[in-house]
C-alpha cells in the first residue's frame, strides 16, 4: 500500500527575507522541509512500521533545489520521492493539480499526508484542493491518526480545547498538525542511507494537468514595516501595574 506525503521546500523561518524584483525573494538563504511536513513524514513512517507491504513516497512541486527537501524527507523515513520540477513559484490551485496528477500516475494511495500549511505562503488550502482533485475525503490539523486498511480514525484540533474525531474511508487526505508526533530527526546513518534512495524527476509538461481557470498571483511583495517605539515603564511593581492599567484604559481603551 502506498502512503504519499506531499512536502514543500521553504525558507528557514529564522532566515532574513530580502525582497528581490517586485514579487520574489533572495533565495540564497537556508531552505528546509516545511515544519508541518516533518510531522507528516514522521506519521507516514510510523504507520509503515506497523503495516505490511507499505511504501512511503514523498512528493514535491518545486525548483531543482527542492531535491534537498526530498532527501530530508527520505532521511526521516520516506522510501522514495517524486520531484515535479517547476522554475517558477506556483499557487495552491496549480500545486494541488500537479500533486494530484503525480500521485495518480504513480499509484493508488492508501493515504495522502500533507502539512496543515506551509510557513512561507501560509495558504492553508492545498490539502483541501488535493482532496477535491483526487475525489477523496480530507481532514486537517490532525493530532492523532489510527489507520487500518479500510480507513482512518483521526483526531483534529479545531481550537484550544476542541477536538473533532472523524472517520474517513481510505484513501483519504490528512493535513498534519504540530501535535501529531515528535518529528523523526534523522541520524547520520539515516542521512547516508537517504542518499541512495531514488528521486524520480518529472516536468509539469509530462503530467496530465488541466489548465486552471482560477488563480492567485502575487503582484507585489514588500517588507513588513514595524511601527513600535519602545517606552520604559519604571518604578515599583505597583507603579508598573498602575501604568499598565492606565495604558489599557486611556490609550488602548480596552477597559
Amino acid at each position: 500500500m502506498n502512503i504519499y506525503v506531499c512536502v514543500k521546500h521553504v525558507p528557514d523561518s529564522a532566515a532574513t527575507i530580502t525582497v528581490e524584483g517586485k514579487t520574489g525573494i533572495n533565495e540564497k538563504i537556508t531552505f528546509l522541509l516545511n515544519p508541518y511536513d516533518e510531522h507528516a513524514v514522521t506519521e507516514a513512517a510510523r504507520i509503515k512500521a506497523s503495516s505490511a507491504d507499505t511504501e512511503v513516497i514523498a512528493v514535491c512541486l518545486g525548483k531543482a533545489a527542492a531535491e534537498n527537501t526530498l532527501r530530508a524527507a527520505m532521511a526521516m523515513g520516506a522510501d522514495r520521492s517524486i520531484l515535479i520540477e517547476t522554475d517558477t513559484s506556483r499557487d495552491s490551485i496549480f500545486t494541488a493539480r500537479a500533486l494530484a496528477a503525480a500521485i495518480r500516475s504513480d499509484g493508488r494511495p492508501w493515504m495522502v499526508f500533507t502539512g496543515k500549511e506551509s510557513i512561507d505562503s501560509e495558504g492553508m488550502q492545498t490539502q483541501f484542493r488535493l482532496a477535491q482533485y483526487l475525489s477523496l475525503p480530507v481532514a486537517t490539523n490532525a493530532i492523532k491518526v489510527d489507520a487500518d486498511s479500510d480507513g482512518v480514525t483521526v483526531e483534529c484540533e479545531r481550537e484550544a480545547g476542541t477536538i473533532d474525531v472523524y472517520r474517513m474511508a481510505a484513501p483519504c487526505v490528512i493535513g498534519a498538525g504540530k501535535g501529531l508526533n515528535n518529528p523523526n530527526y534523522p541520524t547520520f546513518p539515516d542521512i547516508v542511507k537517504s542518499r541512495k534512495k531514488p528521486i524520480k524527476k518529472i516536468g509539469t509538461a509530462e503530467l496530465t494537468i488541466d489548465t486552471p481557470v482560477a488563480g492567485m498571483q502575487i503582484q507585489e511583495l514588500v517588507p513588513a514595516v514595524e511601527q513600535h517605539s519602545p517606552k520604559a515603564l519604571t518604578g515599583s511593581p505597583a507603579d508598573i501595574a498602575a501604568q499598565i492599567v492606565d495604558i489599557l484604559k486611556n490609550e488602548a481603551k480596552v477597559i
Binding site: 525558507p11 523561518s13 532574513t16 527575507i17 525582497v19 514579487t23 525573494i25 510557513i119 512561507d120 505562503s121 501560509e122 492553508m124 481557470v213 482560477a214 488563480g215 492567485m216 498571483q217 502575487i218 503582484q219 507585489e220 511583495l221 514588500v222 517588507p223 513588513a224
Partner: peptide, 26 residues
C-alpha cells in the same frame, strides 16, 4: 479581487490578485 496578506512569517506583505469565477476571502 485584490488582497493583502502577510507571508514568510510576517516578514513581508504580499499583494495578491485573484482570478476566477468565484472569489473566497478569509
Amino acid at each position: 479581487h485584490r488582497v493583502k496578506t502577510s507571508q514568510f512569517s510576517g516578514k513581508t506583505i504580499a499583494t495578491i490578485a485573484m482570478t476566477g469565477t468565484h472569489f473566497i476571502y478569509g
